[in-house]
């Protein structure tokens, strides 16, 4: 029987992963969650202890700011392979194929960890939102350690020491896009801070989220990192996505590919984004944004 360990960082991603794991192995595996309440400076020590006690075959970790540091570090310490940002996990007889995106999602590659088992557990990370929320349950090892200031304890002697000195809540964008059913997205083609504010107004008016592309973010028109959609930002799955002045770069398109309906407005009739849209409108983005603001809900 395989043992599957999941690192629980106190957000839904651990249960999304558990749901996926159970869909692969059902009752053929033993599942265990390791919980330590985002204790960033102690995560390595606690994970190493849990792994030594449990000897899992697979370790699955949410690709968060914390998980993205823990997973590759464990890879070196356990001398094993780590698959990053899986978009799917496929059981192939005795092997597990981790489906991993590259080149902004333009290409998906199978990754295997040959010889995986308790000696060299296969490790993989999964971005939040990749798999559906799940009410699945399993055994939990709760270290009951909360995040607090203090030295980084990496579980072994390292040269150089750092201390966590401050924990500040982040300022968030006006609307959270990761769960939004409707998204208005501004690309480089919106061209100004004014138009970004109008996108936010549209989101407010119609009850959706305001997102942006990386080039729009780089222009400092107002959106912050939490609004960016794409492989290095948020992955969204709205019922309707409406892109204004979005060119269709691979790393953005990968973040919207699971939207039910994609509408794109772009004044360039050859924009690449039209090939991945359900509906295209060759219009000046601002004109359509203004017209939508005039419409009633």
């Amino acid at each position: 029987m395989k043992k599957i360990m999941i690192m629980d960082q106190g957000d839904p991603v651990a249960y999304q992963i558990l749901g996926k794991a159970k869909s692969l192995y059902g009752d053929d595996a033993d599942y265990v969650m390791v919980k330590f309440h985002k204790a960033h400076n102690q995560a390595m020590r606690l994970m190493e202890k849990a792994i030594a006690d449990e000897k899992p075959d697979v370790i699955l970790i949410g690709a968060t700011a914390l998980g993205e540091e823990v997973a590759p570090a464990l890879g070196i310490r356990l001398e094993t392979g780590v698959a990053a940002h899986c978009i799917d996990i496929i059981r192939k007889e005795d092997e597990l194929a981790f489906m991993v995106p590259a080149f902004g999602g333009k290409v998906i590659g199978e990754i295997f960890v040959p010889g995986w088992g308790p000696e060299h557990p296969a490790i993989a990370t999964v971005k939040p939102g990749t798999f559906d929320d799940s009410k699945a349950d399993c055994r939990v090892i709760d270290f009951d350690v909360m995040i607090e200031a203090g030295e980084i304890d990496s579980g072994r002697k390292t040269q150089g020491t750092f201390r966590l000195t401050g924990i500040e809540p982040r300022k968030h964008a006006k609307s959270d896009i990761s769960k939004a059913q409707l998204i208005f997205c501004g690309g480089f083609g919106i061209g100004s801070t004014d138009n970004w504010q109008k996108i936010e107004k549209l989101a407010e008016k119609f009850g959706g989220g305001a997102g942006c592309t990386r080039p729009a973010l780089d222009m400092d028109w107002g959106p912050d990192e939490s609004s960016m959609i794409g492989t290095s930002g948020k992955t969204v799955k709205p019922k309707v996505y409406i892109g204004f002045g979005v060119s269709g770069a691979a790393h953005h398109v990968c973040g919207i590919k699971d939207a039910d309906v994609i509408i794109s407005i772009n004044n360039d009739k050859d924009a690449e984004v039209f090939a991945v849209s359900d509906y295209k409108g060759v219009f000046d983005a601002e004109a359509v944004i203004d017209a939508l603001l005039e419409e009633d809900r």
């Binding site: 194929a97 998906i108 590659g109 060299h120 398109v253 590919k257 359900d278 295209k280």
Partner: peptide, 27 residues
């Protein structure tokens, strides 16, 4: 320790139908 298997290019293409007819306005 990781070994690559097959590569696939996910099909992301969609119909790209015109939202409105050619002479339509932004409204």
């Amino acid at each position: 320790p990781t070994q690559p298997g097959e590569l696939i290019a996910p099909h992301m293409g969609r119909a790209g139908e015109p939202l409105v007819s050619g002479d339509a306005t932004a409204a």
